[in-house]
């Protein structure tokens, strides 16, 4: 592969990671508040289908994206309502919704199958696009990819640098402590679940109005992405930059699968296509292995300097979820 092809490929990986990034950051925000939205997989499909339908009907990609965000927020609010108000299990409701939204998108999407509709295109940034290498990688993308870059920084800044962000973390960590500090725990959980859902909902139109433009029903190739999004959220340790790294890693692995295919003819193509999924789960395992008791047990007998180094690495990788994730809050 020559260098210009490589540069284009990197640019492609960044663009392919954009929807995953939106979904992961959205889920991160929601989980930071303590709401686990397991419906992600179906929700992405439904918003991909719905936003394409809206864009097709109105001939407006902007309305398409808005529809995607609205669907995301709505699905997320259903999970939140079931858990915070009806006190049902977030896991059960989220899981059922994941299946329901997926089937709904296939069913409702039938009439628009295979139609050609509007899509967004690349908007090179004048001047900057001419920078060698970097110009191609960063500045010859579409709007949503640019926004995905901004989203990482903005989410990090909001969560870790602003006052509402601090309260958001507090609500997911220890709602009782946030409550005595004046936070309206349930209202904030609704709010951030909706915001997180809306951001994650944009993943749908990024696929159906850009990366995989159109709606192709069961062969859209979007089924499964949502589950990976959930695992990347954990891999990311509920931190935007680390989550972004996870999203890019996943996109890179998918790209690698495609590139390697011609040079590995003996391996069935399906294997390379699904390989990124188990690989992500493996990395996930790696992240949390430091918590396992048997690791502790085996480490104790290693020579001191080796042990110290391993412990340090494990501790750096380790990620602890918001302590109140999935736990409803009651005052009395």
């Amino acid at each position: 592969m020559n260098s210009s092809a490589l540069v284009t490929s990197i640019a492609g990986v960044l663009a392919a990671a954009a929807p995953v990034l939106f979904a992961v950051i959205g889920e991160t925000i929601s989980e930071r508040a303590g709401v686990l939205n397991l419906s992600m997989n179906g929700m992405i499909l439904l918003s991909a289908m719905g936003s394409f339908a809206v864009a097709l009907a109105t001939n407006s990609v902007v309305l398409g994206f808005l529809a995607g965000a609205a669907i995301g927020a709505l699905v997320s609010l259903v999970v939140t309502f079931a858990s915070l108000t009806l006190l049902q299990s977030q896991v059960a409701v989220g899981f059922v919704l994941a299946q329901l939204c997926r089937d709904l998108s296939y069913f409702l999407g039938n009439p628009i199958m295979g139609k050609v509709g509007p899509r967004i295109s690349q908007v090179p940034i004048p001047g900057l696009e001419r920078i060698p290498v970097l110009g191609t990688i960063l500045f010859r993308q579409d709007v949503m990819t640019y926004l995905s870059f901004i989203l990482i920084v903005a989410a990090w800044f909001f969560i870790f640098r602003t006052r509402p962000g601090l309260t958001l973390r507090g609500v997911g960590e220890r709602p009782a402590a946030a409550y005595i500090r004046g936070a309206n725990v349930n209202r904030l959980r609704y709010l951030y679940a909706a915001i997180g859902g809306a951001i994650a909902g944009l993943a749908g139109p990024i696929y159906s109005l850009s990366i995989k433009a159109g709606w192709k029903g069961t062969i859209s190739g979007l089924d499964g992405i949502g589950w990976i999004v959930l695992s990347i959220t954990i891999f990311g340790g509920w931190k935007p930059f680390r989550a972004a790294f996870g999203a890019y890693l996943f996109a890179f692995l998918q790209w690698l699968g495609l590139v390697l295919q011609p040079s590995l003819p003996s391996v069935p193509s399906q294997v390379l296509q699904v390989a990124p999924f188990p690989l992500m789960i493996l990395t996930l395992l790696f992240v949390n292995i430091g918590n396992a008791e048997w690791v502790d047990r085996s480490l104790a007998r290693l020579p001191e300097n080796v042990r110290r180094d391993i412990v340090r690495v494990l501790r750096a990788m380790n990620a602890t979820p918001p302590a109140a994730l999935g736990v409803p809050f009651e005052k009395e």
């Binding site: 640098r161 602003t162 006052r163 509402p164 601090l166 309260t167 973390r169 507090g170 960590e173 220890r174 009782a176 402590a177 946030a178 005595i180 500090r181 004046g182 936070a183 602890t320 302590a323």
Partner: peptide
Amino acid sequence: PLDFPPFKVIDDFILGKKGGLIP
């Protein structure tokens, strides 16, 4: 104590104090 174990002391201290967007 109703505090936030994984937070920095200063973040725990600030949380709940009214003020501008960026403390």
